[in-house]
Simulated scan of single mutants.
Amino acid sequence: MNEEQYSVACLIVGILSCVLCCMCFGLPLGIVGIVLFVLSTRNGHGIDAKAGIGLALSILGFILSIVAAIVIFIGIIVSNDNSYSSYRDNSNPFEYFIEEYGDSLDYDDIDDYQNLPYYFDENEDAKINEL
């Protein structure tokens, strides 16, 4: 590859490192952009505008990726999600539901079925079960 192609590659990688910095992909892409910048300026070739912008974007993406990694790490440490851990620790998930929402599904009385939008016939239910 000649120096012009390295300059274009440096610019593309710099743009990608900035765009993907929130997913921490800017770390390796920033390093690749810096290496491509060095390759584009070898053999006494001057700094091309594309290579200079690519270098700046690569460094910016690298720094933003470090900041994003720190924010993600702090967010993981600070988060205190007790509801999931208490659900996971219960041997019976229904106990967690009753603790959280109360015993709202208790239908011991047959009159509660009268509030349903259809008529419940026990004889019809028995016929269906026989099939």
Rank of each mutant, 00 (worst) to 15 (best):
M1Q: 05
M1K: 06
N2R: 07
E3Y: 09
Q5T: 12
S7A: 15
V8M: 02
V8F: 01
A9F: 03
A9W: 05
A9G: 03
A9Q: 04
C10P: 00
L11F: 13
V13S: 11
I15T: 01
L16R: 00
L16D: 00
S17T: 00
S17A: 01
C18E: 00
C18G: 05
V19K: 01
L20A: 08
L20C: 04
L20N: 05
C21R: 05
C21P: 02
C22L: 05
C22A: 05
C22R: 03
M23T: 15
C24W: 08
C24D: 06
C24L: 11
G26L: 03
G26R: 01
P28V: 10
L29G: 08
L29I: 07
L29P: 10
I31K: 11
G33Q: 01
F37M: 06
F37R: 06
F37K: 08
L39C: 13
L39I: 09
G44Y: 05
G44L: 08
H45K: 11
I47R: 13
I47W: 10
I47S: 13
G52E: 07
G52M: 07
I53V: 15
I53K: 04
L55R: 14
A56I: 13
A56T: 10
A56S: 09
I59T: 04
I59D: 02
G61C: 02
G61P: 01
I63C: 14
I63W: 07
L64P: 07
S65P: 14
A68L: 11
A68S: 15
A69V: 13
I70K: 14
V71Q: 12
I74Y: 10
I74C: 12
I74H: 08
